[in-house]
Simulated scan of single mutants.
Amino acid sequence: MTFKFQRKRLLLSEKNKNYKAIGYARATKNEFEYLEEQINNLKKEGCSIIFSEFVSLDEEIKPELNKAISCLSKGDELIITKLNRAFKNKKECLVTINKLINKDIKLRTLNGFFTAIDSSKTNSSIFKILYELDNLENKSLNDRKKEPRLHRKLAGNNLGGRPKISPLKESLVIRLRNEGYSYRSIRAQTGIALSTIRRVILEGEL
């Protein structure tokens, strides 16, 4: 009888712990059943609050995810079913993990991934290293793509004999294209021929 009473008190104390488990679920348009399935699994996991939304993984801003993170405090836990429910790539994942760890917040998935906060300094260092390694990998890849073009320039080639434009104008064309402007809009803003604009953008992707 005493054991049952102590066990009951222990369970009550567990429920009264001063931390929250907040869930986040995401699905793309028309995936109603999949979103509902995630929500049910997060409820079973004991999430006190669940934020959910229909949004593409590629969207830069996920409003409900941001709300979930803003509700978290020291010692709390963010729970998702899988990493790809919240993050579109490794870099985005590592950035968020570092932010959470620095605030002593756990991240856990239902398929086994988790970050502990008992040794937050160690964990934070590990994820910062991973983040920097990912940056290094991306920079190295970009440098390798630029090398053939750089060699041709150093050799004095005119990239097929087409008319040259200044590096400043090239960078302007690429920047405008990255900002979503059409080829014709770029021509109107810069006065550069469409054929030259296409060539600069194509070479920028090499």
Rank of each mutant, 00 (worst) to 15 (best):
K67D: 15
S70L: 07
S73T: 10
S73E: 14
K74A: 12
K74S: 15
G75D: 08
G75L: 02
G75P: 05
D76T: 03
L83A: 01
A86R: 02
K88E: 13
N89T: 00
N89C: 04
K90L: 01
K91P: 09
K91C: 01
E92R: 00
V95C: 03
I97R: 04
N98P: 11
K99M: 12
K99L: 12
L100D: 10
I101R: 05
K103H: 10
D104T: 09
D104P: 10
K106Q: 14
T109F: 02
L110I: 07
N111L: 06
F113G: 07
A116S: 15
D118F: 04
D118R: 03
D118Q: 08
S119D: 15
S120E: 11
T122R: 01
S124Q: 07
S125A: 15
S125I: 05
F127T: 00
F127C: 00
I129Q: 08
E132V: 08
E132A: 13
N138G: 11
K139A: 14
K139H: 10
K139E: 15
S140V: 09
K145G: 13
K146S: 15
K146R: 09
K146P: 12
E147I: 13
R152D: 13
K153M: 14
K153W: 06
L154K: 09
A155H: 02
G156V: 02
N157I: 07
L159R: 02
G160I: 00
P163K: 02
P163H: 05
I165C: 07
S166E: 11
